[in-house]
Design a protein around this nucleic acid. Structure first.
Length: 855
RNA sequence: GCGGUCGUGGCGGAAUUGGUAGACGCGCAGCGUUGAGGUCGCUGUGUCGCAAGGCGUGGAAGUUCGAGUCUUCUCGACCGCACCA
């Protein structure tokens, strides 16, 4: 096919679209210019646009989900650039993490070497896809000291401010990872990386980041993110799990007290017992001298554990045991028994509740099982709050909006919601309680007992305890040549020269922290580093970050809705409070693309339904692969990968190529065009065919431009381009015969090339040059739809009878209602339909349709 | 259980505000081109029917001149959360 480039006359039927020849040729030209995709400096008069796709883990192989993600992002970046924006389109590598260690175990390659090699491979794949990333200025690999030293720096800043702290806690432990997991990394009781591996609980000393300090702001901020999918916002809301209620202190016999948390303090007169979590401090204390209680408690802890591991804690059979103790309800002065129950969670609220069987489902179930009294203290407002309500009201009665207190002393007759407020205040005044807010969100445990991560910059001194590594000593370098094992305990602990240091405070021998940071630390702020990736004096320049932030569009998988996206928001708020940035939120708009599935299932090696991007590119080219990824479904939905579909897109591109080759000489002969705007006057006096082509062309421009503005239904954009090309192909004989003005032919091919440029950059570049376009198509201006040229001269008006279609009539575009009505009634079929019937009403929707109401 | 998303041809999917349901592509069928092949071209393709004409957006009802679209109920699929007090 290389002879197609020669000067010999080319017979149209000999020209073949050959992406295997076109794409590498253009890639080589693009690779030769590292500044090609560089953003302009902050002084640029253009408005900025930060287009960000989530960075991949360098597994060594791009998968088809990446192709989809980056096809969306790259099309957007190219489009925005053509629209005249100063576009930042960076890429990097989330390069720390366990797979590198596993690979090291398997084929004794050091994690660093393995990772660097994978990065190189994936970069080649991205290059083949023609992705317009600004590698030279932005590329970040989180496993390099130039990056992770700033993780350490941030950690120290947080430590200074009390946002990083160490405590002993029960933590999620994945036996396969041989490390601790954050709550966010436990999925259905299993490890997020090992879906079949149950997470165990271990008591350990761990570093935590105080994300709960921002719980309220993280929650409230969600309302200010209209550009984020509702689904993600809902998931985050649930995850943060705010719950407003009241803490009430019950005095317990023996001089102790137990604080309960309740959202329904209005039902406190119905509390017939106190229920403590098995791990509650009081229970532990009592168990020391009560062997029977201790045994019962141990059993309950085991049950909770087992249920949690089975991912079935919601359905655990409720068990409890009476402690023999009693407590005093401060509202009633009455004494209630104190129980321990396995359905009370130690780590939520205060680990203690008041049990109100009449108005809580769980309490009801429990009280019924153990024969505890059930006392009603609420009635539906409709019953007037009568004290002697007939009693046939089904219990538990949990409504609060319609409910009125009964049998509740001075509070009887109050509406539930008001009572909650007033009783909370009352408790506060009397000093036995207060209104509080509880969050489900827990602090973020960031210690990992792994090698391939950021060393935590802390030194333990016998005299001074945990001492921060001085900033001047950063980075704490991750040592090379470390023996990786899958046994428990940090691999770094075995590296003497790493562990043994001197205390920065007193200079005496001390030990380094041997845990590394969760890799989600790396990805919590990487997009800031992109703006100033080579800065060795600071994580980034505030000036640059403030220019580029917030991210205008963030694109990635919905699987990060909780983990990465909540940590990133947290990190942004911390950085703002450190004075580094001004924005409160990292990204203005978030787009979560759907999964790519094959044969109805998620791709996985075990199912053998994995599609290889290299294979697709090799067979159909990068343009066809990318375009198919956008064409097969709207980007937010799951996409079923069908190879025949890629072939279809490839056929389409081949048709475009063949037509362009054929008409290139004609297009080039039109001196005026070459990417300049042509005045609409130049198109006056068209043949009907020419006018029709121009009309479709400008309708297509309008459609795609509109879609890029927010709807993002690229599947219909590409469909629209196909319609246009089908029409051009149908007009081929007419164009050959000179029945379409050359200026129109030129306009069509130039514009068509611009329209496909965001989606299939290789072919667009090839055609742009072939057609004599000025400069790089990358920098060409996006076409502007001309409404005059897009306007239909004739409208097709459906005529309905009682809402059912009878016929479609053609009317001039400017026909008024009367004219449309007349045309409809004049139609033969309509007349037939009306025969013998009475026309009750005629509805004419201008430019849309006619509906005849007939009896 | 709670929250969310979604049910349209043989398949992926169109129909943005209620206004011609099935665009575009795949697949399939027929014809053509080619020495042959198909990542080629053309034509057809919701369904019943020879046709005229019916019927059709998971199901039922409602609002409306008109409903895939709005409302209520219901069935199903997928995703997230789940003794959260």
């Amino acid at each position: 096919m290389s002879s197609a480039e020669s000067n010999a006359p080319v017979r149209a039927d000999e020209v073949r679209y050959n992406p295997a020849e076109i794409e590498p040729r253009w890639q080589a030209r693009w690779d030769a210019d590292p500044a090609l995709y560089r953003a302009e400096p902050m002084t640029s008069p253009k408005p900025k646009y930060y287009c960000l796709s989530m960075l991949p883990y360098p597994s060594g192989q791009l998968h088809i989900g990446h192709v989809r993600n980056y096809s969306i992002g790259d099309s957007l970046a190219r489009y925005m650039r053509m629209k005249g924006f100063n576009v930042l389109h960076p890429m990097g590598w989330d390069a720390f993490g366990l797979p590198a260690e596993n690979a090291a175990l398997k084929n004794s390659t050091p994690p660093r070497e393995w990772t660097i090699k994978n990065i190189a491979q994936m970069k080649v794949q991205m290059g083949r896809l023609g992705l317009s990333f600004d590698w030279a200025d932005t590329e970040v690999a989180t496993c390099l000291p130039e990056y992770y030293r700033w993780n350490q720096w941030f950690f120290l800043k947080m430590y200074e401010r009390g946002l990083a702290y160490k405590k002993s806690a029960k933590l999620n432990w994945c036996p396969k990872c041989a490390t601790v997991l954050a709550n966010e990394q436990v999925v259905g009781g299993c490890c997020w990386r090992h879906e079949d591996t149950l997470v165990e609980q271990r008591e350990m000393q761990q570093w935590f980041l105080r994300i709960t300090a921002y719980a309220e702001e993280l929650l409230d901020g969600l309302d200010k993110l209209p550009g984020w999918p509702e689904k993600v916002r809902t998931m985050q809301r649930n995850w943060i799990g705010r719950s407003d209620g009241t803490e009430v202190v019950f005095a317990v016999e023996g001089g102790a007290s137990a604080t309960v948390f309740t959202t329904r303090v209005d039902t406190i007169f119905g509390a017939t017992s106190l229920q403590l979590a098995p791990e509650h401090a009081l229970v532990k204390q009592w168990a020391e001298t009560d062997a029977a209680l201790a045994a019962a408690v141990d059993e309950m802890v085991a049950q909770q554990q087992a249920a949690k591991e089975a991912g079935d804690i919601g359905n655990i059979e409720k068990h409890g045991v009476f402690t023999g103790k009693h407590a005093v309800n401060p509202f009633t002065g009455q004494t209630v028994p104190v129980w321990v129950a396995n359905y009370i969670l130690a780590d939520y609220g205060t680990g203690a509740i008041m049990s109100v069987p009449a108005h809580d489902e769980r309490d009801f179930e429990f009280a019924t099982k153990y024969g505890l009294p059930i006392k009603r203290v609420l009635a539906p407002a409709s019953s007037g709050g009568a004290q002697d309500e007939s009693g046939d009201l089904a219990l538990p009665y949990t409504a609060e909006e319609e409910a009125v207190l009964i049998d509740s002393g001075d509070w009887s007759g109050e509406a539930s919601l008001e009572a909650q407020e007033k009783m909370g205040k009352f408790a506060e005044e009397k000093g036995f309680g207060k209104r509080t807010t509880t969050f489900r969100l827990k602090d973020w445990g960031v210690s990992r007992q792994r090698y391939w991560g950021t060393p935590i910059p802390i030194i333990y001194c016998e005299e001074h305890g945990a001492v921060a590594v001085p900033e001047s000593q950063l980075p704490v370098l991750l040592p090379e040549n470390v023996q990786i094992t899958q046994e428990g305990g940090s691999p770094l602990g075995k590296v003497e020269e790493f562990v043994n240091v001197v205390c920065p405070t007193c200079g005496k021998p001390a030990r380094r922290e041997t845990d590394t940071m969760d890799t989600f630390v790396d990805s919590s702020w990487y997009f800031y580093r992109y703006t100033d990736a080579h800065n060795d004096a600071a994580p980034f320049s505030s000036e640059k970050a403030n220019y580029w932030f917030p991210i205008d569009q963030y694109i990635g998988g919905v699987e990060h809705a909780i983990l990465h996206l909540i940590y990133s928001r947290f990190w942004t708020k911390v950085m703002r409070d450190l004075g580094l940035i001004k924005n409160d939120e990292p990204a203005e708009r978030l787009f979560t693309q759907g999964m790519v599935i094959k044969d109805g299932a998620k791709m996985s090696k075990s199912k053998g339904n994995v599609v290889s991007p290299d294979d697709m590119i090799g067979r159909y080219g990068a343009d066809a692969t990318r375009m198919y990824a956008l064409f097969a479904a709207p980007p937010d939905r799951d996409l079923e990968w069908q190879e025949e579909g890629v072939a279809g897109v490839s056929r389409f591109l081949a048709r475009v190529y063949r037509l362009a080759v054929k008409f290139a000489p004609l297009v080039k002969s039109v001196e005026k065009v070459k990417g300049d705007e042509i005045s609409p006057a130049a198109f006056a006096g068209q043949t009907e065919q020419g006018a029709k082509l121009l009309r479709t062309l400008h309708q297509t421009i309008a459609k795609i431009t509109e879609d890029f503005a927010g709807r993002w239904h690229f599947n219909t954009c590409i469909a629209a381009i196909m319609i246009l090309v089908n029409e051009v192909a149908a007009a081929e004989p007419a164009m050959e015969a000179g029945e379409v003005a050359p200026v129109t032919v030129a306009e069509i091919f130039h514009t068509l090339t611009l329209l496909i440029a965001p989606f299939s950059p290789f072919l667009a570049a090839e055609l742009w040059e072939m057609l004599g376009g000025h400069g790089l198509i990358l920098d060409a201006a996006w076409p502007v739809a001309n409404p005059e040229l897009a306007k239909e001269s004739e409208l097709e008006i459906p005529v309905q009878a009682n809402g059912k279609l009878v016929v479609v009539v053609k009317v001039p575009a400017d026909a008024d209602e009367e004219a449309i009505k007349a045309a409809a009634l004049a139609d033969e079929k309509v007349q037939q339909r009306l025969e013998g019937k009475q026309l009750v009403k005629t509805l004419v929707i201008k430019g849309k349709l006619v509906n005849l109401v007939v009896k």
